[in-house]
Design a protein around this nucleic acid. Structure first.
Lengths: 155, 155
DNA sequence: AACAATCGTTGACTTTTTCAATGATCCGTA
DNA sequence: TACGGATCATTGAAAAAGTCAACGATTGTT
């Protein structure tokens, strides 16, 4: 049950001042995490992004594709591709927007929710693995700070 | 002097459980930061990555291209392109490796160091801007946690 | 001396990103 | 109520980024 995780030894170059650049730290941790996450999701035929779309489709928030694009920092055309794939596999459906008939609301199917449940477990395990070197409190604090940096003081 | 920064209002979808996924938080903050950073570096004809290479070339650590690739999570061929560009502009030079003559050590020129100084200021400002909503202590703590997640407990 | 491994480099290939254009629909305004 | 500008999802093309295998030069090991 070894933590075949991210943390190698501190590389020589981490000593440089750039080792404290938030941009680089985010890039590296994100890159390493993506590898782990995509590996964890491969069993389900999902990737990080399709998992995100599926999760939001399962959330009950009834997101429109535009909202998905904004929230996931993607181009609207990329969302089309992701939803096309999930829809073809019967995991989500496009429903007509309620107030706005231009918009399409993405909702999960029963099969989609089943799939999401399993994928969610794998993702949680991957996250735990990636942050294994942090204590529980530290992980929580890291997430809180990331959320705050993104969306402000909202609690 | 408004902080025309990252923080919009908390979007509706952030309420979903995925709003606490480390993968998504990293992706979003990294994406937002990259935009800011690249904007800040555009004046110098640099981008996030060429800035990273230039920084490490200026660090005195005499990194090889292989080390740069590992440290920056890039394919070695991508490093070739980055160094080619910086070398063509006279900001860095390729020196022969000391023990290993296969390796090339990337070192900065005087002009490179001058350029880096200016770019560094712009980057610091951009980082300050991106993390404006965090207190000084919070920013430090965020960086510490990111470093720890990446490289372990090393202090 | 021979062999496998590593370094930087090149080129091909795939994937991802970016962007403009389009029809349908919405909204504000006259 | 009809017009005009804006927004939505979608398409397709173009640009950028990432991936991968192969190569000569060099290293370290046997």
């Amino acid at each position: 049950m070894a933590t075949l995780g991210t943390e190698v030894q501190t590389p020589r170059l981490a000593a440089a001042r750039i080792g404290s650049d938030v941009g680089l730290l985010l890039a590296k941790l994100h890159a390493a995490g993506s590898v782990l996450n995509n590996k964890a999701l491969a069993d389900f035929g999902l990737r990080e992004r399709s998992f995100s779309v599926l999760t939001l489709a399962c959330s009950g928030l009834e997101p429109t594709q535009r909202e998905l694009a904004d929230f996931l920092s993607l181009d609207p055309s990329q969302v089309v591709t992701l939803v096309d794939d999930l829809e073809r596999r019967g995991l989500v459906e496009r429903a007509q927007g309620k107030q706005d008939r231009r918009a399409k609301i993405i909702v999960s199917t029963a099969e989609g929710r089943r799939m999401h449940g399993k994928a969610r477990s794998a993702m949680d395990a991957a996250e735990l693995n990636q942050l294994a070197v942090l204590s529980g409190e530290e992980s929580q604090e890291l997430k809180r700070l990331l959320r705050k940096a993104l969306w402000g003081a909202a609690e």
